[in-house]
Amino acid sequence: MAILEVRNLTHFFGGLRAVFKFDLALQEGEVLGLIGPNGAGKTTVFNLVSGFYHPTEGDICFRGNEIVRLRPHEVTALGMARTFQNIRLWNTLTVFENLCISQHSKLGYGILGTIFRSRGFRTSERCIRKTAEEILDILSLRHYANEYPKNLPYGLQRRIEIGRALAMRPHLLMLDEPAAGMNPGEVDQLIELITWIRDKFQLTIWLIEHHMRVVMNICERIVVLDFGETIAQGTPEEIRQDPRVIQAYLGDADSIDA
């Protein structure tokens, strides 16, 4: 069954056509890669799907809900979580607080519950802390619980961002270039982590990545975007040999072979 269905998605920034007639059916439990040269429109697709931009045209259906007109937190509440290409953690909040606040869409209490510390408030806060602690353990972040993200190394921040997304218990996890800026050792760890997360949480993963080693290793299917249009899709093997893909990456062909 398709967890996410995108039809005819088109988006313009003024005169710039960033995404054009993008179609996708993401199957439950799948790991899908989205690749393409710089400026191809990959991040824009993520921003459209997560409700940050409203598309010029097209439909997006997530777990049976039309989400095109929803605001980002409403989309999130349906079970979609993501990370950002340039890390966007909350830097004056601790790692632990970061993991708690991302559960905002599941609070189940409001301003009155907060003030009167209602039963709903207490159960919910307990549950939130428990989830956050689980994530700390799972991602080996326990040691950094009370640190502020900005004081931590880059690779670790990436992991915290994945943790913050996982804390929402999403059905679909979207990762925007999770390996960017990582050294080879960290990339190996990341590949292991993503595979492990998929099995452990049984979720669907959609990732954008430039590191071909990551994409070729963990994706079952790959979609290639160029100038906002899908130019190819298929298994890693098929993509590696597709002449249009090689054309699009011309001069960058090494990265495909890597």
Partner: peptide, 25 residues
């Protein structure tokens, strides 16, 4: 000190991230 109220601190730190990560900003 509640997770609810800390949502406004997330708004201060990064409003876009807060909204996308589920805070009704």
């Amino acid at each position: 000190t509640s997770t609810y109220g800390k949502g406004i601190v997330a708004v201060r730190d990064d409003e876009i991230a807060a909204n996308i990560m589920g805070v009704n900003t």
